[in-house]
Amino acid sequence: MRTLKTSEAASELNVSPNTLRAWERRFGYPRPMRTEGRHRLYTHGEIASLRDALKEGLSISSAISRARENLRADTPVLVGALSACELDRADAAMEAALALRSVERAVEEILLPSLHEIADRSGEASAPWAFAVQWASDWLNRARRLAPSGVRPLTVLVGDATRDEQDPDALDTWALELFAQRAGAEVLTLPVTGLVGLGDVLANFHPRAIVIAGSHAGDDDVARWAYAVRAASGPLPVALYRRGSRRPAGRTTGTLVLPHSPSAAQHELMALVEGRPAAPVPASEPSVERSASIAPVQLRRSASA
């Protein structure tokens, strides 16, 4: 993925860096990533798309709307490839998406919405959904293998409370695990129903936070598991992700409810682990949220490090 510094992006658009920052504040676009030193890094695809739209636009709003539509064009391609069970074409669609975006944005803006669209069209008990989930699982696992592992002293234990791989919440959980790992954390996922030998695992893996992801497992199972973890590792902060509850205004009873968006959840989770207040998450489009029409279902995965 080609990236541009603020001055380069401004030059490409023939505007000043102040103008770019003004657009980011007002429209949430273009949405830069940040370097280690908190400098903005723009994706070339986003800037090129906006440059083309500005040539024929009558307002910044309409140009940004058009640029966003152009970038979203990858979603129908991926949906079409997965619906036709064409693995190569699906991989190529994600490759194309990655040419214009970071891994996090490609997952949130292309992969997850495509899968949710297939769930809407075909249902969660259908073969296309099962095929799409299998492909997405493979893709996300490949991305995790390529991600640097544990470059920061941050360890997160994910309690998997989803039903199985067909559970739509499982997709978002895998995305959260990938994002956390790419942010430098070491992530271990264990099913919340597996209590046997839990202490032995935790003797070698010292988590600094627990995330309980998914809403299939009952509260009793989750409470027993969390108690066993805290008995072995001490009092750790607990966060809930896609646990079926609505997001409260703030923390309640010491448990943090993470936002539904995997990237926003990852930001808050990292802040929780590092013990700092969560920084405001950059404006994102509502399309990354799953539509309310998809009933929450679940998954259970075997332990994976």
Binding site: A22, W23, L54, I60, A63
Partner: peptide, 12 residues
């Protein structure tokens, strides 16, 4: 030189 307003930065 640019189609963007240098005053408000928000209009063409």
């Amino acid at each position: 030189a640019s189609r963007v307003c240098g005053n408000c930065h928000l209009g063409l």
